[in-house]
């Protein structure tokens, strides 16, 4: 009998977890609208990577998404992946949230990258989106500071700029 209760409890827990992992369909729709609305400054040779970001809330206020947009100047690139031991510096997504406020749902959705050389892949283009969905774990803590951005190192075929972090207050 005890075993049955145990199995039922386990199934309930699994159901709750699966429900928590599911992204609200309307939130996904709001994110796709936000992608169109999110504007970055025009990148230049002096500043070849511009970044903007925003928080997108579900109507229920129980979930939200962080949307980061990067625009890269023509002929410039930032690294998406590098092989172990490669000197090139891969882009990382940086976030600063109030501790315990959010629980991520899955991994970051990242833009398509392209193979650059034998030890690296790169991001190019002026509309690159990095998106992650979260469950709001603690609505009180949500009042704190939210920031998101990218750490990257940009190059064109002729020169490179040192690595840089660009963070946006959300």
């Amino acid at each position: 009998m005890k075993r049955i209760y145990y199995i039922i409890a386990l199934l309930l827990l699994l159901t709750v977890q699966l429900k928590a992992q599911k992204v609200d369909a309307t939130l996904e729709l709001l994110v796709s609208i936000a992608e169109k609305d999110l504007v970055t400054q025009d990148p230049t040779v002096q500043d070849p990577v511009t970044v903007n970001a925003k928080l997108v809330w579900a109507e229920s206020k129980k979930q939200l998404a962080v949307v980061i947009k990067a625009s890269i100047f023509t002929d410039w690139h930032i690294y998406s992946k590098v092989t172990k031991g490669s000197p090139f510096i891969p882009t990382t997504i940086e976030v600063k949230f109030p501790e315990g406020a959010l629980l991520p749902i899955g991994e970051w959705e990242k833009p398509f990258d392209e193979e650059f050389n034998e030890s690296s892949s790169i991001y190019v283009g002026d509309e690159l989106f990095f998106i992650r969905y979260y469950n709001v774990k603690d609505a009180v803590k949500i009042q704190g500071e939210f920031r998101a951005g990218l750490y990257y190192q940009a190059c064109d075929p002729f020169q490179c700029f040192p690595p840089k972090t660009k963070m946006i207050s959300l």
Binding site: I89, Q159, C160, P163
Partner: peptide, 8 residues
């Protein structure tokens, strides 16, 4: 130069 600089 720097180690992460391809053009270098």
């Amino acid at each position: 130069f720097t180690v992460w600089c391809g053009p270098c």
